[in-house]
Design a protein around this nucleic acid. Structure first.
Ligand SMILES: [Zn+2]
Ligand SMILES: [Zn+2]
Ligand SMILES: [Zn+2]
Ligand SMILES: [Zn+2]
Lengths: 149, 149
DNA sequence: CTATATATGCGACACAGTCGCAACTGGATC
DNA sequence: GATCCAGTTGCGACTGTGTCGCATATATAG
C-alpha cells in the first residue's frame, strides 16, 4: 500500500524538540487508522499523555504541517468544518469522498505525478503541498440513487 | 479565458425561487473579480440589497453549491479558515496559492481532464466536485527565498 | 548540573458557520 | 390583480474549531 514516513525518526532528524506531548501526538497520528480530525487526535493522544492540552495538539499539528510531515485534508467537509490529518506518503495520492455513505477512498496514479510536474514547470511554481479532493457518489451509492425516482 | 456559467439564467432554468436577496448575491458572485469569501460577498451583496442577512448569504451559498453552480475553495487557508467561492467554469481548473505573497494563480490543462476521467473509471466513482489546490512559492517568492541564507 | 531557549497549560477569546422560529413573499392559480 | 401557501428570510442566540498571551515547566547543549 501507500508507504508512509516514520514521523518520530523524521522529527529527530529535523532537530524538532521531542517533548512527551509531541511524542504522544506523533505516535497517535502514526498509528491512526483512517483520517482523524484534531479533536479526535486529542482524545486519543490523552491515552498516552493524559494531561496534553488541546492547544498543544493544535500547535503540534501546525508544526508538523509546516515541516511537510503530515498533510491536511478537508474531505469535502462531509462532517462539519473540521480538518483531517494523515502522515505524508512517498507518492502523492488523492481522496474520493462519497456524499452518500461518507466513505473515503484513496487513489494514486502516475497521471497525478505527471500533472504535478507539468504544473510546476508551466507555472514556474515551487510546489510544497498538493491536495486533490473529489466529492461524488461511490459505486454502491450511485446505483442506489439510480433505482429511486 | 475560463468560460463561466450565467448563474441567474441557470437558477431560473433549475426552478430556483428568485428572491431579491438571491438575485443580489448571485449577481455579486457573478461579477466578482477573484475569489471572495462569504463575509466579503455579504458586504458586496448589501450594496444591492442593504437588508440581506448574513444567514441568508450562507444559506444561498449552500444552495448554489448543492446545485453545482459554484465551487468552494480553501486556497490553502492562507488567510484563516474561511472558504472562497467562484462560478463553476466549463473546464475544471486548479489553484496555486503562494505562501510568500498570497497570490492565487489559476491553471487548466488537458492532463487534469484526463486524470478526472481516469479516476472516475478506475474507481467507478461518479464525480460531482473536484478540487485541486496547491501551496508553495511562486517564481518571484522562490527566487527571493534562495537569495537569503 | 545549570542555563536558557523553547514548549506547555490554562483560560479567555475570535470568528466562521448554523439553527429555530415567527414573519414575509415569489410565483402559481383563479 | 387578488389570493394563497410552501418556501424563504431576519433575527438573535448558539456551536465548535481554532487562536493567543502569559506564567510556568522542561528538553537539550555545554
Ligand atoms: Zn457511498
Ligand atoms: Zn476547509
Ligand atoms: Zn509569491
Ligand atoms: Zn478559480
Amino acid at each position: 500500500m501507500l508507504k508512509r514516513h516514520d514521523l518520530l525518526i523524521e522529527a529527530a532528524e529535523r532537530g524538532i524538540r521531542l517533548t512527551v506531548q509531541r511524542r504522544a501526538l506523533i505516535e497517535t497520528i502514526q498509528e491512526a487508522k483512517g483520517h482523524l480530525d484534531a479533536e479526535s487526535l486529542w482524545k486519543l493522544a490523552r491515552k498516552r499523555d493524559p494531561n496534553i492540552d488541546r492547544a498543544t495538539v493544535y500547535r503540534t499539528i501546525e508544526l508538523l504541517k509546516r515541516h511537510g510531515m503530515i498533510d491536511e485534508l478537508d474531505l469535502m467537509h462531509l462532517n462539519g468544518e473540521k480538518h483531517y490529518y494523515e502522515v505524508k506518503t512517498q507518492k502523492d495520492h488523492l481522496h474520493l469522498a462519497c456524499f452518500g455513505c461518507g466513505k473515503i477512498e484513496e487513489f494514486a496514479t502516475p497521471t497525478f505525478e505527471r500533472l504535478k510536474r507539468e504544473i510546476a514547470k508551466k507555472n514556474e511554481f515551487s510546489i510544497q503541498v498538493m491536495r486533490l479532493e473529489i466529492g461524488g457518489l461511490c459505486r454502491r451509492c450511485a446505483a442506489q440513487e439510480e433505482a429511486l425516482p
